[in-house]
């Protein structure tokens, strides 16, 4: 927990960073939009110490400081330069839409999930997002210029029925599979990867892909991919997804595999139950 003093210090540093950035932008206002954005991002990265504290404030998913700052900066920059669209690319130049039709794409909460949707929409995929109620999607959808707006399936007791309809229509499902459980005894958050989407892919025999978006040093959002092994059990596939995240420099951890429905009852701010355990996968071959 942050003391008031720490919060004040973090906010003071952030204001200093913003002033620095404002000054840079003012001095370089003749640059084209892409150049100005890229060079402004360089300023932020170079002055990480002024900005990184934001990750310590009100950040339940422990989202990386650069993702938090990037998103805030992009929203500001868009007001400055209305023609600005965040640059996004997929890390495989030879990608084809066919490979992802009717697939489940598993990722984690990091403010870049809509960017992932945009990246796949650009190659022609129709996107369906699986989302918890109350998540602020409309603003993100507008910001990343998703068109048409994706279908959204609410995460509830009927969501897998609708997910199955979506993949049968060859839409790509994007699912955030991470969640947190608060441990009141240890006073800490446990981070888990929910097994249900991996089981869904196994039971419906539809392709599964691991996806993770990161911001590179040039301020471009890069979407990293790996296709899951269809022979893996759901549990093993979930473990492999954790390995994929680690390979891609995922900085939040440790992660373990859990069952979101069983662990949280579908409710936010769930608390760790003493008997919380992994649901056995009936899909194991």
């Amino acid at each position: 927990m942050n003391s008031d003093k720490n919060v004040a210090l973090i906010e003071a540093k952030f204001r200093e960073g913003q002033k620095l950035l404002d000054s840079f932008i003012g001095q370089n206002s003749s640059l084209g939009t892409s150049d100005l954005f890229r060079k402004s991002w360089h300023v932020i990265v170079k002055n990480k110490a002024l900005f990184e504290g934001v990750a310590l404030l009100r950040n339940r998913f422990d989202i990386e400081w650069d993702n938090l700052v990037y998103f805030q900066f992009c929203r500001f920059f868009e007001k400055l330069r209305p023609d600005f669209v965040p640059p996004i690319r997929i890390d495989r130049p030879d990608i084809s839409m066919e490979e992802f039709c009717g697939s489940t794409l598993v990722t984690v909460h990091n403010l870049l999930e809509i960017a992932i949707a945009r990246a796949f929409q650009k190659i022609g995929l129709e996107i369906t997002l699986v989302s918890s109620p109350g998540i602020r999607l409309p603003g993100h959808i507008r910001f990343f210029r998703l068109a048409p707006a994706p279908l959204i399936i609410r995460r509830d007791r009927n969501c897998m029925l609708l997910m199955r309809d979506a993949v049968q229509l060859r839409r790509a499902l994007i699912v955030d599979v991470d969640y947190t459980l608060y441990d009141p005894e240890a006073k800490m958050l446990h981070r888990r990867i929910g097994i249900n989407s991996f089981e869904f892919s196994k039971r419906t025999r539809t392709p599964l892909h691991y996806v993770f978006a990161k911001i590179d040093v040039e301020g471009e959002i890069v979407v990293h991919l790996r296709k899951a092994n269809s022979e893996d059990s759901a549990g093993h596939a979930a473990q492999e997804f954790i390995r994929f995240l680690t390979t891609n420099d995922f900085r939040r951890g440790p992660l373990s595999v859990g069952d979101w429905f069983a662990d949280t009852g579908g409710k936010p701010n769930a608390v760790l139950k003493k008997s919380s355990s992994l649901r056995a996968s009936n899909a194991d071959g």
């Binding site: 009927n158 029925l161 199955r164 249900n196």
Partner: peptide, 23 residues
């Protein structure tokens, strides 16, 4: 729960030999 309902629709499709709308 959601997984059970998925299994239910898939089992019904097997028994009735037809596609069933999730919606």
């Amino acid at each position: 729960d959601s997984m059970d309902r998925l299994d239910l629709v898939m089992a019904l499709e097997d028994y009735l030999d037809r596609l069933i709308s999730g919606a």
